[in-house]
């Protein structure tokens, strides 16, 4: 690999908690190898350097303000490959919960009555980045899993298309040997949610909240019926679907 041109990689962050970038930084064992394969030219959370010549852009966060639209379009123009990094970027994520309310109200709740006077406090409904620019690949999850980030990066470097699971979390649960959440008297959205997380939440006693978004063809009608059969109201069902799926339900 030595003589090859090292691809330049940049990380960008929009509306989010920046936890997915932190996951990248916590790949401590692999980072020396990663740095021998790529040049990182823009990564606000890790380095001071900021260059605008990059091949691969990993973009974290959803788009929730007008000026972010302009910024991300510039990134798309420069990058050969754009990868959505994490739930906010890939599906809109938790940020889309705000879309249930009028934007003026959201602004007032967060910044107070005078908020609307200040232009820099503007806000628009939160959206995944592919609602604004074309996206080449997706790394799902809230946060992303380190292994999947590395897998996608390695695939891109090898010129292979990364295969992201298109089966639901139920598969991961069975492979992990978990007792089904529904058997334990709880409910989850695992049967319609994209796997690839090794069902980590269920494995550690929680439920699946759906952070990796829906599989390509989820049977949502069936899942609505199931959730109701297990005691959820229509409102409860909507809440289950909306936690991470707010953008989709609009």
């Amino acid at each position: 690999m030595k003589n090859r041109h090292k691809p330049k990689v940049a990380f960008f962050s929009f509306t989010c908690c920046e936890g997915c970038q932190l996951q990248v930084l916590s790949c401590e064992d692999e980072l020396p190898d990663v740095l021998s394969l790529v040049d990182i030219v823009n990564f606000r959370e890790a380095i001071d350097e900021k260059r605008d010549d990059y091949d691969i852009a990993f973009i974290e966060g959803s788009i929730s303000r007008q000026h972010e639209i302009n910024e991300i379009k510039k990134i798309r123009e420069k990058a050969k490959v754009v990868v959505a990094l994490g739930a906010c970027s890939a599906t809109g994520g938790l940020n889309c919960l705000k879309n249930r309310f009028p934007m003026e109200e959201v602004q007032r709740v967060v910044y107070g009555d005078k908020a609307k006077k200040y232009k820099h406090l503007d806000t628009i409904p939160a959206r995944p980045i592919d609602a604004v620019i074309p996206v080449d690949y997706y790394i799902h999850g809230c946060p992303i899993t380190k292994s999947e980030f590395l897998y996608v990066l390695k695939s891109l470097l090898l010129g292979k298309k990364p295969e992201i699971p298109n089966y639901p979390v139920c598969v991961d649960c069975k492979m992990e040997g978990n007792i089904c959440v529904f058997e334990k008297g709880m409910t989850c959205v695992g049967p319609v949610t994209r796997a690839g997380c090794s069902a980590i939440c269920v494995t550690y006693g929680c439920i699946c909240w759906g952070c990796r978004g829906l599989i390509d063809n989820p049977n949502l009608e069936a899942h609505e019926e199931t959730l109701k059969r297990y005691g959820l109201t229509t409102e409860g069902v909507l809440r289950s679907f909306d936690l991470y799926g707010g953008w989709r339900s609009r």
Partner: peptide, 12 residues
């Protein structure tokens, strides 16, 4: 019509 296509029947 009601199947999820979740693979659980196969995996168990």
């Amino acid at each position: 019509k009601i199947c999820y296509g979740c693979g659980s029947c196969n995996n168990v």
